[in-house]
């Protein structure tokens, strides 16, 4: 299990790094756009489309799992974290497995959707013909790793020793 855990962490970190780089690219592109347009009257026209189609989905979904690992997803916390006894264990598992099911379905459906776009060679007609398959593929990638994380945690996280 430890090896799987390590691989999963590496995967999450790699996707997170991609998301971070995406954000820096956005900063550079928008500033370049503003500067070019003020000084030279030539905008970096592909910036808007690139950001909207690829960069925003990337930096919003690639780190889903890493953020979950760090406890970064907003949850209510005025109820005790661990309930005692068997119900407590059940709640602990459901808390992870139900979202795993949900995101599993998201991966399945959005993955099929992306695959379709690849097969049909769908493009968004913009400054250039943007291939939509690559844009759509980002969501199942980010959500897919989250599913692995949720299942891994459900399987490995010990029932709470302290009650």
């Amino acid at each position: 299990m430890n090896v799987i855990g390590t691989i999963l962490r590496k995967l999450e970190d790699a996707l997170h790094l991609l998301g971070c780089l995406g954000l820096l690219v956005v900063v550079v592109l928008i500033n370049a756009d503003i500067l070019m347009r003020l000084v030279l009257h030539v905008p970096v026209q592909f910036q808007f489309e690139l950001t909207e189609l690829y960069l925003m989905p990337a930096l919003a979904t690639l780190s889903l799992s890493r953020v979950f690992r760090d406890g970064g997803h907003l949850a209510l916390d005025f109820v005790p974290e661990h309930l005692p006894g068997v119900p407590g264990v059940v709640v602990d598992k459901l808390r992870l497995l139900l979202p795993a099911l949900f995101f599993g379905l998201v991966v399945w459906m959005s993955g099929k959707f992306a695959l379709h776009a690849f097969q049909r060679g769908e493009v968004e007609y913009g400054v250039v013909d943007w291939p939509l398959g690559w844009a759509y593929a980002i969501v199942p990638l980010g959500c897919g790793v989250l599913v692995l994380r949720l299942i891994y945690d459900a399987l490995t996280r010990e029932a709470p020793a302290q009650v």
């Binding site: 954000l23 900063v27 960069l55 925003m56 919003a60 979904t61 379905l105 998201v106 959005s110 969501v139």
Partner: peptide
């Protein structure tokens, strides 16, 4: 219901206005 999951995440994230969020937080 499954079909709703096809593109909701993409449509919700693929928006230029949203870029304001990571940028202002950064």
């Amino acid at each position: 219901a499954l079909a709703v999951l096809e593109r909701t995440f993409f449509d919700s994230s693929s928006s230029f206005i949203l870029v304001a969020i990571p940028l202002f937080i950064l």
